[in-house]
Design a protein around this nucleic acid. Sequence first.
DNA 1: ATGTTTGTTCCGAT
DNA 2: CATCGGAACAAACA
Length: 282
Amino acid sequence: MPELPEVHTITSDLKKHILDAVVKKVEIKAGFSVSPSAGVFKKKLVGRKITDIHRVAKNILLGLDSGDFLVIHLAMTGRLLFRKTGFKADQWERVIFTLEKDGKIGELRYTDLRMFGKVKIINKAEYKTLQNKYGPDPITETFDHYRFLELLQNKRTNIKNALLDQTVISGIGNIYANDALWIAKIHPGTKTSDITPPMAKNLLAAIRGILNESIFNRGSTLDDKMYVDIFGKQGEHQNYFRIYGKAECPRCYIPVKFMKLNGRGTYFCENCQLKSDQESLL
DNA sequence: ATGTTTGTTCCGAT
DNA sequence: CATCGGAACAAACA
């Protein structure tokens, strides 16, 4: 479930609590695969110190003193939970990392219901490849709406699908794509070729605004409670959704339209989110 | 029981 | 040949 704000929240909390910790033990539960093989994975991890923690797109990266990186992608239902040793078992445990910091022992638990998430060790070269895969990060990189527009113009799809394309702009998922388009008053089905410079400018500002607001609110926890922070606490941003999951438009108070666009649930207001061909009539 | 789900990747189609 | 979009991945819930 996590998108950029949720991954950001987890990453910054990890940085506060487990930076400089040493990995004492790694347990991989039956039925879950890590990369490389479980044996190599453990060998590259046990005894290593975590010297750097940051986010790349929706990936959590833990830099090790060996130069390798532990990469965790939570996909739809992954969680990272920081627990005291002996704390009751969590649901859907897949990998347990035992850590020691300042003489204190704790566990970082990777749990994942659907197991779409990825846990792997990569080297420096693979880290470069990972970084290069992604488009600009809307909150950590400085780029303007001209560059954004250029990236969009290279696509032949609708704007919502382009926002979800991590090679165009990274970190946005379905929820924030819906809300950003609503804030920018752009119809999700608008062809990227119909996006004008003012639209790109508004949209980039909307994306940055909504992502930063959600980070302030420590991310969004939906009804299924899948996203929680490393201490098991829910986010608050679900209380501030604009159009995602809504029945009526907060601006127009008319019923929200729902459709499937590229297989993803898409909410929009047909009154205030205009397609560009309609916009030209204004 | 069938349909739905915050993400990504693979493969067939265009 | 590059790009797009649907299916698949797996499990719980309504």
